[in-house]
Design a protein around this nucleic acid. Structure first.
Length: 261
DNA sequence: CGCTTTTGACCTGCGC
DNA sequence: GCGCAGGTCAAAAGCG
């Protein structure tokens, strides 16, 4: 069985897709602009505006409820995955042969050169104009190969940790076949040294949080909080969501401002 | 000059 | 055994 299934990290943090915007956002924006442009002091219009405000409030509540529901779903899925991984017998600890020396070609030695079992995936948004496929996650990586794979038209880049020569950490970065604006970073192995710069984390100029979500971290109590933070963070990056919120706020301010005589 | 990236060749595992 | 695909190596080029 593929260990990635036993590892809940396959639930990569693809939070920029699918959750929002909600169907109501466009109308929220439209109504907001109508209100700003056509403000009037007549009672009829005030009554209409009040009704629209109530409508908007209801919509915001619905969106908020949807967010809560989705958060709960993600939490449930994580719980399920952790439970599932508990039922899977632990894979034997495997060790990769670091480097090959001329006398190292013993096929018996190579036979035990397995990949690291503790892999994790991270789905991250990146600037499509940026073709470097660099995912800054606080570690220094050295690219050692690139390959076009069968299941994806985009090339896959192979990186090794260059901070410490003995560090077994590796990662593969490839653009998503479904969504070209997403990068799929697959981490293998663990760093045997300290993080370089935890706070310097960005993807193609778009700031984001450290992406490496290891199995142990996902079981930790802080993981769910991080998950929620990432969801909130991704929502705030959504321009349409921001616009809808801005329209709703401006509408609210207009409603509560004293009507000039 | 040292480090990183590029890229073609090579190695290995797997399915047929 | 053969071919294919994924992963890695290593020399050359690029860059600061």
């Amino acid at each position: 069985m593929d260990s990635s299934w036993a590892n809940p990290s396959f639930l990569s943090l693809d939070l920029g897709v699918g959750l929002l915007p909600s169907p109501g956002q466009a109308s929220v924006r439209e109504r907001g602009s109508v209100l700003v442009e056509g403000s009037s002091s007549t009672k009829e219009e005030a009554r209409l505006a009040s009704a629209q405000f109530g409508d908007l409030e209801a919509k915001l509540n619905r969106i908020s409820e949807e967010n809560k529901r989705l958060s709960a779903m993600v939490s449930d899925m994580l719980t399920d995955c952790v439970a599932l991984s508990g039922g899977v017998p632990a894979l034997p600890k495997r060790k990769r042969i670091e480097t090959r020396t001329p006398g190292d070609d013993d096929p018996c030695k190579r036979a035990i050169a397995y990949p690291m079992p503790n892999t994790s995936k991270a789905y991250v948004r990146f600037d499509p104009k940026n073709t470097s496929m660099v995912v800054k996650d606080g570690h220094r990586w050295r690219k050692y190969g690139q390959k076009v794979t069968r299941d994806n038209p985009f090339p896959r880049a192979y990186f090794r940790c260059s901070f410490a020569p003995s560090c077994p950490a590796k990662k593969k970065v490839q653009r998503s076949a479904e969504d070209g604006s997403m990068l799929v970073a697959t981490y293998e192995g663990e760093h045997n040294h300290k993080h370089l710069a935890e706070d310097e984390v960005s993807v193609g100029g778009i700031p984001c949080r450290p992406l490496q979500q290891r199995f142990e971290e996902q079981e930790s109590p802080g993981f769910h909080r991080i998950l929620v933070e990432q969801m909130a963070s991704s929502l705030t990056k959504d321009p349409s969501f921001t616009a809808a919120i801005a329209a709703a706020i401006s509408e609210t301010l207009l409603q509560r401002a004293p009507v000039p005589n």
